[in-house]
């Protein structure tokens, strides 16, 4: 038996498993991102609202999700949440890839609140004087927020949001705990079937490294192309 046999990574059944895992990891990332970003934006707006109870609600959402590890979230959504559903909904869930659905819910919420914090700090990075200036020109509050505050806030938020996306990509690995057949699951599966742990984990490592570094590069380039220009 060879020490490192790259051929199993290039074709054959193990290769297929690993590639399927990679694809699912990517899908989990993209779908969760699609839910997390709007959720995060909403929570960020809540946290910066002028209405105090709204701010409190936003803070509660963020703190209660953020202070619990992703693994515990996954366990809850997969093992506990279905118990709360009415019979028909539960049947529907179990018939349609419950591992992936629960993983997406958990990942979206977890990534979402972190994105909310990044967007919030982006909003706070814009000096209050900007809004004052906009209002002095006669723009209403909504227009001031939309035309002056948010564009600047988003520009400041993009690098941390991209960094959060890298975290999301890495976090998909934890979904293995509820049996989602993403890359870590498949790597472990290959290991169990063939004892080829070195090749399987190398594949996973390269995949994670590549995507993470690509996203980080994108963040870096964005920061260079659209620097946050102080007033």
């Amino acid at each position: 038996m060879q020490f490192f046999d790259p051929s199993i990574l290039q074709s054959g059944q193990y290769h297929d498993w690993l590639v399927q895992g990679l694809i699912l990891s990517l899908q989990l990332t993209v779908v969760s991102f699609a839910f997390a970003l709007p959720f995060g934006a909403l929570v960020a707006v809540m946290r910066t609202a002028t209405f105090a109870p709204m701010r409190a609600l936003g803070a509660t959402i963020v703190e209660s999700i953020r202070n619990v590890p992703l693994l515990a979230h996954l366990l809850f959504w997969y093992f506990a949440f279905p118990e709360l559903l009415p019979e028909s909904a539960r049947e529907l869930l179990y018939a349609n890839n419950p591992e992936v659905v629960c993983a997406v819910i958990a990942l979206s919420l977890y990534a979402g609140v972190h994105m909310a914090e990044d967007i919030r700090s982006g909003i706070r990075a814009v000096p209050a004087t900007q809004l004052e200036a906009a209002r002095s020109l006669g723009l209403g509050r909504a227009a001031s927020v939309r035309l002056v505050l948010l564009p600047q806030a988003l520009r400041a938020s993009v690098p941390p949001l991209l960094s959060q996306t890298v975290n999301l990509w890495k976090d998909t690995s934890v979904a293995t705990v509820i049996g989602a057949a993403e890359m870590m699951y498949q790597a472990a599966r290959v290991e169990t079937a063939s004892f080829r742990s070195l090749e399987a984990f190398t594949f996973a490592t390269l995949a994670y490294l590549t995507v993470s570094l690509l996203i980080s590069l994108a963040a870096h380039l964005y920061g260079r192309r659209y620097p946050v220009r102080a007033a």
Binding site: V166, K170, D171, S173, V174, T176, M184, A187, A188, F201, A204, T205, Y208, L209, S212, L213, S216
Partner: peptide, 14 residues
């Protein structure tokens, strides 16, 4: 950079 680019779980498995 490298350590931050890979999931903790992966390192744990290794």
């Amino acid at each position: 950079q490298v350590v931050r680019a890979v999931p903790l779980l992966l390192v744990l498995f290794w």
